[in-house]
Design a protein around this nucleic acid. Structure first.
Lengths: 361, 361
DNA sequence: TTGTATGCGTTATCAA
DNA sequence: TTGATAACGCATACAA
């Protein structure tokens, strides 16, 4: 392929009509259209800089050859890939996909593509993962949570890479996009208090490992403290997120006859499991035990209202993250959006079809 | 930046210690290590072709400069990006994330990165999406389902791009990786028949739009036919997948007093909703109405067993798709794996913690 | 408006 | 084992 000074630069001046070895390049299009490569490039990216006639010829040649821009070459020349990396752990069994879907949609609308990494075990692999994204030349990165390794932030800084921390609040290390879960916690607590609940339990995620679980726990604790209350120590359970875990946690509370009239769940898988356990325990839910949860998935709403939920607009995290990064890439200041508002939903009083059982109680 | 013949090719022979404009390149590393660029390249990619001493010097320089390979340049030279594209519609609210997670994990283990596209409205945008992935130079593509546009297959063929159709069976257009949902349907039907059920209903996804919903529907119909039975026409409901939809569908069946003793649900969101509706209807589930579903998510198992489930090993689709594509990229023949086996799960007889209510009934 | 000539940062070929 | 050098395909500054 080298050492052939006598032959023309490109051996195939003829378009690969049937399907030649290599895909068509700018030079091929140029040859077919009878113009220079530079003209073709402009015809495609700056149509207004080219005459109507030649542009038509170029476009025709593009069509005939099935030409597709070589992004690697473009990226090399332009020093940008129009690609954004995202690192989101435990992707499959969480509510992150909704967020990622929104992120991808937002990015795609602006011509960017999403490079996704979904490590199973976070700490272990992460620096290597970021390096992989760096090698791919991502223009920016979206990370889940504010608790990244120092090495991660160092790499980001060294490469001057715009980045955003999703589902997090107030980090000194970078701009965050997150929910106002604290306000949500306050709303839930206020609601429960107004219903007369004075002894409240909590079934949540593992605060040592999960910064989101920690934020919710703290939010509830603080909200209670403001009312001079505190969580019932006999009804505090940390567990993995999951339907089964919620089921078992609530079973434990019931069997131990924990003296609570309300339980706040860290997410709605836990809540749904807890509700299901109550059902089996033969307890009349509405009067004896009120359940509340964060992070509304629809299914929990159909189990046994009244269930009070702090609905987190998960998709908006992705949208705002996308918007933010795109603004950054445009050189705009990209103001960090304020904490996204959450919504308190009280099933019994909303129009959402109430569970029939709720009527008779 | 051009027109500077007097200056050396790279103006900064000194490493960007603090943080210069552009990230370190091979040439920078070479300069610092006192070798040629080619040597650096080899030192990194073919360590065995280099002397111990120089490799050490190179690695040291790499470390000092924080050098990261420029994937675009590498891709341009090597004509491969080590990147794989995936197009999966309605990504956020489905069970696809589990599949994608597995795909990404498998690819990452082999040094490939996943480029993800998750269009909201499928037909409309898809050709453009594939083009976007082509421009990014993906080495291969994973598509959801066998029903792609002719244009899609044409593009794939024109670019000689290896691809695989996930969650699909037996397409003439390409290699598929899917479940043996037909066998699963047969198992469910056999199970229900052995329990004495003779009139069976079906609540499933929209067969006109969803090839997976169609496959399940057909599977059940065929399995029934083999036993000389057929679905109860008064108890056939097509709807969107979702907890609410299952709830409402089952409500309809109950209110219409559909003459069925068993209902098969197309996925477990529908099943969970259906079970919840039965609960509200005051019907004793175990004796009067048996529910079965495809595609097991854990939560349905905790509602009201006995629930019979065709568990689809969703993650394996992603794994196998990844394996297949990687084999193809290696030039291996990549035999198409047979339809992935599904597993029939009868809650009441398995060790999965039975719902307490099941005991008393 | 269009053509020409570099340069982007690697890899791969050939010669040393 | 190493160095020099030609692609890889595109974008762009400059000249025409």
């Amino acid at each position: 392929m080298l050492r052939r000074p006598a032959t023309p630069k490109r051996s195939r001046a003829v378009p690969p009509a049937g399907g030649t070895a290599r895909p068509a390049s700018l030079a091929d299009v140029a040859a077919l259209a009878g113009v220079s490569a530079g003209t073709v490039s402009r015809a495609l990216s700056r149509p207004d800089m080219i005459s109507e006639a030649t542009r038509a010829r170029v476009l025709d040649a593009v069509e005939r050859l099935g030409y597709v821009t070589n992004g690697s070459a473009r990226a090399l020349a332009m020093r940008r890939t129009r690609t954004i990396g995202a690192i989101v752990p435990r992707f499959g069994t969480s509510s992150f996909p909704t967020m990622i879907q929104a992120l991808e949609t937002t990015l795609a609308a602006h011509g960017h593509t999403l490079l996704l990494s979904a490590p199973e075990h976070r700490e272990a692999r992460e620096p290597a993962i970021l390096r992989a994204l760096l090698e791919r030349g991502v223009d920016a990165v979206a990370l889940l949570g504010a608790e990244q390794s120092a090495q991660t932030f160092a790499l980001l800084a060294a490469h001057r890479l715009p980045f955003v921390l999703m589902w997090a609040l107030d980090s000194a290390d970078g701009d965050c996009i997150g929910f106002d879960e604290r306000a949500g916690a306050a709303q839930v607590v206020d609601h429960l208090a107004e219903l007369g609940h004075r002894s409240i339990g909590f079934i949540g995620g593992r605060t040592a490992e999960n910064e989101r679980a920690r934020a919710r726990f703290r939010g509830v604790v603080e909200a209670l403290a403001r009312r001079g209350m505190s969580l019932c120590e006999d009804a505090l359970i940390e567990t993995d997120y999951g339907f089964r875990q919620g089921f078992e946690a609530m079973q434990r509370l019931v069997q131990a006859r924990a003296p609570v009239t309300a339980v706040v769940c860290g997410n709605d898988y836990l809540a749904a499991g807890a509700l299901s356990a109550l059902d089996g325990a033969g307890i009349e839910v509405p009067r004896e035990l009120s359940i509340a949860s964060f992070n509304d998935n629809e299914f929990a709403a159909y189990l046994h209202p009244p269930l009070t939920t702090v609905r987190l607009p998960i998709a908006r995290i992705g949208e705002e993250a996308g918007r933010y990064l795109i603004a950054r890439l445009r050189g705009e200041q990209a103001p960090v959006p304020a904490a996204l508002p959450v919504q308190l939903i009280v099933r019994a009083s909303t129009g959402v079809a109430p569970h029939p059982r709720a009527r008779g109680s």
